[in-house]
Design a protein around this nucleic acid. Structure first.
Lengths: 135, 135
DNA sequence: CCTCTACTATTACAATTGTAGTAAACAATG
DNA sequence: CATTGTTTACTACAATTGTAATAGTAGAGG
C-alpha cells in the first residue's frame, strides 16, 4: 500500500511511467527541470526502498528502475485517499469540470454514458428492492 | 493559489468544511483522533497564515476559523495539480471507477448525463466544421 | 481586585522531504 | 596496469510537517 506521493516524487514517477524503465541518467535526461544526478538518485532510491512504487535491477554497471505500480493503480490510490475528504460531496461538480476540461474521445464518452446508465439502473433496482422488501 | 494540502491538513479542513466554522476547541471535539489542543491550533494557524485556505475572526476571547476556499474549489485545484501526471491518460477509466463506487443522487446523474450529451454535441459540431473547412 | 480558566503565542523537536556534495567502486581504454 | 569517466553509497543540511509543552494574557466569578 504505497503512501501518498509528493509532487516531486510524482514528477519522477511520471517520467518512468512514460519511459517504461530507465537508469538515473535516463531519468535526468528526460526531466524538464535541471536536478542534480544525485538528487534524482536519492529520490529514486526512496521511491524504491521506502515507498515501494519502483523496483530496480542491476543491468551492467547501472541500476535500471521500473515502476512497480501502474499509473492507473496509483491514480486509484490517490483518488481513494482523497475521496472521503474532498470528492465525496463534490463528485458531480468535479466530473462536470473534468468533462469540460478534458478532450474526450468518442469511445470515452460512450463508455461514460454506459456507466451512467448502469448506475441509474442499479439505483432504480435498489429503490424497487427497498419498496418490495421494506424490512 | 493554495498549495497542495497534506493528509492531516485536509483532515482539519474537512471538519471545518462540515461545520462551516469553529474555534480550535470545536475542531478538537469534532475530530476523530485525539490531537492536543495546541497541535490543532498550530495547524489551523498554518492553514490560515501560510496556506490561506482558512480565515479567522476574533469572537469574544477565541478565534473562529472558517474555510476561505470551498471544498469544490480545493477539489478542482488538487485535480488540476494531479491531472498532468496521473490522470492524463487514464481519466475516463477513473471517472468510471468513481461513478461505480459512489452513491449518486438522481439529480446528479441527470446533470452528468446532460453534460455528457453537451460534450457529445460539441464534438459532433467540431467534426462537421473540420469536414467543411479542411485546413 | 484576585484567582481560576480558557485561549493564544512562543518555542521545541523529531520525522520527512527536497536538494546536493563527496567519496568509493567499477568499467573501459590506452 | 594506470587513468579516466560513470555510477553508486554515504553523508549532509535546510525547509516543511506533525506533534506538543510551556508560558503568557484576558475574561469570569467571587
Amino acid at each position: 500500500m504505497p503512501n501518498r506521493l509528493t509532487r516531486y516524487e510524482l514528477e519522477l514517477m511520471n517520467v518512468l511511467w512514460d519511459m517504461g524503465e530507465g537508469t538515473v541518467q535516463n531519468v535526468c535526461d528526460a526531466l524538464d527541470r535541471d536536478l542534480a544526478y544525485t538528487t534524482v538518485m536519492t529520490t529514486l532510491n526512496l521511491l524504491q526502498s521506502k515507498k515501494s512504487v519502483l523496483e530496480r535491477v542491476k543491468k551492467g554497471r547501472a541500476y535500471v528502475y521500473r515502476p512497480a505500480v501502474s499509473r492507473e493503480y496509483m491514480s486509484k490510490t490517490v483518488l481513494d485517499d482523497l475521496t472521503p475528504v474532498l470528492f465525496q460531496k463534490a463528485l458531480p461538480s468535479l466530473v462536470l469540470g473534468m468533462l469540460s476540461r478534458e478532450k474526450l474521445e468518442e469511445e470515452d464518452i460512450n463508455a461514460l454514458k454506459a456507466a451512467l446508465e448502469k448506475v441509474e439502473r442499479k439505483q432504480a433496482e435498489h429503490k424497487k428492492t427497498k419498496r418490495n422488501h421494506p424490512q
